[in-house]
């Protein structure tokens, strides 16, 4: 019984969202606002069960790890943002987040996105595909070099870089469309199969 009600609720909500394809309407708006509320509720529950409880509440109040008072205070200072008069106090927490993110990203991006990618691009020219890869990386990088005007050899190479970038954007677009279409197929399978029982 509960499963049947669940399927009906899911099917109706799916149809409410799809009704936007005709035009904006109260049913769509209702589903849209429900989506916002449920998402917020889901993340609050998820954070409580997976972050607050194991990392803050249990260690601080049951295991006596008093040092965790510091992130608790910094977290509460973050929430002070809601009060305009003392909102500046949240800067301490934001500074902590910004500092950690900067230090972490500086190292990880240097390692994975810069050094490792350069290393992977240092290929021998025995195969045509390797040449395409190296030329593509170099010309793409030259396109992003804006300290000199793109004229002459630099301009020509940057133009080649644009072509490579266009192929990549086209491929990314194709992938995005495929992902969305597969979600659409999933919803159609749910409506026609699980809900109406027309697919076997």
């Amino acid at each position: 019984m509960a499963d049947t009600i669940g399927i009906w609720v899911a099917a109706l909500l799916t149809l409410f969202i799809f009704s936007f394809l005709y035009k904006d309407n109260p049913l769509y708006k209702m589903a849209e606002h429900l989506f916002i509320g449920v998402s917020a509720g889901y993340w609050v529950s998820y954070l409580y069960q997976n972050v607050f409880k194991p990392n803050l509440y249990n260690p601080l109040f049951h295991q006596g790890k008093l040092l965790l008072i510091i992130p608790l205070i910094l977290g509460l200072m973050m929430v002070m943002r809601l009060f305009p008069k003392i909102g500046w106090i949240s800067r301490w927490s934001i500074a902590f987040i910004v500092g950690i993110t900067s230090g972490y990203y500086l190292i990880t991006y240097l390692q994975t996105n810069a050094v490792d990618q350069v290393r992977a691009s240092l290929l021998n020219f025995s195969q045509i595909n390797n040449i395409i890869l190296v030329v593509g990386v170099l010309s793409g990088l030259i396109y992003f070099f804006f300290s000199a005007e793109h004229r002459g050899v630099l301009g020509g190479t940057a133009k080649l870089g644009i072509w490579f970038l266009m192929v990549a954007f086209g491929a990314s677009f194709g992938y995005t469309v495929m992902a969305r279409i597969s979600l659409l197929i999933g919803r159609m399978q749910f409506l026609l199969g699980d809900w109406l029982g027309l697919l076997h």
């Binding site: 991006y109 810069a114 350069v118 395409i132 990386v137 793409g140 192929v167 990549a168």
Partner: peptide
């Protein structure tokens, strides 16, 4: 071609 451009973008982002 896609990998080449993606690498250029990744290095630029880094």
């Amino acid at each position: 071609p896609n990998m080449a451009a993606q690498r250029a973008i990744m290095i630029g982002i880094a």
